[in-house]
């Protein structure tokens, strides 16, 4: 697809705008829906932004035992996420093609996880370390599901480039709703786990014995915490965006639409996903830690079936 210069400028503006605004709106939606379901008024939809601004202006409190890893962690996390936000096709339109290889993206995510895990153990606090230990356990289980889910579409498109996977040019994939639905479900389930949301981890409690992500960033404060929060929001937007892309691709009639209407439907889908997550979080309970692998097993099931279809299906053709 060729765009003129004006189109490129518009694409840049739109994508920067959505890259900045969508994460905040998504978390705002989740909180608002949750609050409404609990008969509360809830915070304003831009509350996350206000919180971030406040955190950025605050003073930092740092433990006396920490090393450089802790101090750089926020910046490393946010830069990895910014890089991913620029390269991963989590929106329908992308101003610049940096090439987002599937395996590369997953290992970049692992890089940010490595840094967070080390930073969590830096202060010598048992909370951080328990969180870190749980985080690596969960991610060990989720990783194969995520790889397999995205790879199974990659097999059908015969490319590991996410841009190629999510492009609308391969019309052969337009009628394969089943696999897209499965992959979308797998990605959203993996996303719930990766983002430390219910039912794996409750982002709203601070009970140290159960939490995962919150325990890891327990020692962070001020701008450092703000950067971590930012990267978490971006990660949420990326993962929700990817699964919304999958669901978008599963609707056959979308394939023939213009890019603008695809983009609009995609953003609406993202908010639908956010509301669904909020509803799910209101009715579900947090799983006992030992039950978490069983939850992740369902995610792996979706990806396995998708992989099976991809392997068998490419032969039937």
């Amino acid at each position: 697809m060729n765009y003129g210069a004006a189109d490129t400028v518009v694409a840049w503006i739109v994508s920067l705008f959505s890259g900045f605004l969508l994460p905040i709106l998504l978390i705002g939606t989740i909180r608002k829906v949750k609050a409404r379901l609990q008969n509360r008024v809830g915070p304003p939809i831009f509350q996350a932004l206000f919180d971030l601004v406040k955190l950025f202006r605050k003073k930092q409190t740092v433990s006396s035992t920490v090393s450089w890893i802790f101090k750089w962690n926020g910046a490393i996390n946010l830069s990895v996420m910014l890089l991913l936000a620029l390269s991963v096709p989590w929106l329908c339109y992308k101003p610049v093609s940096l090439g987002a290889d599937l395996f590369f993206v997953l290992y970049l995510l692992a890089l940010s996880r490595f840094s967070t895990v080390l930073a969590a153990m830096d202060a010598g606090s048992a909370f951080g370390a328990f969180g870190a230990s749980r985080e690596v356990t969960i991610s060990t289980l989720v990783e194969p599901a995520l790889v397999l889910a995205l790879a199974s579409i990659g097999i059908l498109t015969q490319s590991s480039d996410l841009d190629a996977i999510f492009s609308f040019s391969n019309a052969a994939l337009s009628n394969t709703s089943g696999i897209w639905l499965l992959v979308g479900t797998a990605v959203i389930l993996a996303g719930l786990v990766e983002l430390s949301r219910m039912p794996v981890d409750d982002p709203t409690t601070h009970l140290e014995l159960t939490m995962v992500h919150e325990a890891m960033i327990l020692e962070c404060s001020g701008p450092n915490l703000a950067m971590l929060e930012c990267s978490q929001l971006l990660r949420m937007a990326i993962l929700f965006g990817l699964s919304a892309q999958c669901f978008l691709h599963s609707i056959p009639c979308v394939w023939t639409m213009t890019i603008v209407s695809q983009g609009i439907i995609h953003v609406i889908l993202m908010f639908v996903i956010a509301s669904c997550v909020a509803t799910f979080e209101s009715v579900a309970v947090k799983l006992q830690w030992r039950k978490v692998p069983e939850f992740i097993a369902y995610c792996l099931t979706m990806s396995l079936i998708a992989g099976l279809i991809a392997v068998g299906g490419s032969l039937v053709k």
């Binding site: 692998p293 069983e294 097993a297 369902y298 792996l300 099931t301 396995l304 079936i305 099976l308 392997v311 068998g312």
Partner: peptide
Amino acid sequence: PAPLAMHLTIVFLG
């Protein structure tokens, strides 16, 4: 375990 049984049935589907 039940999750593994589930994955086993997928293998059997293949």
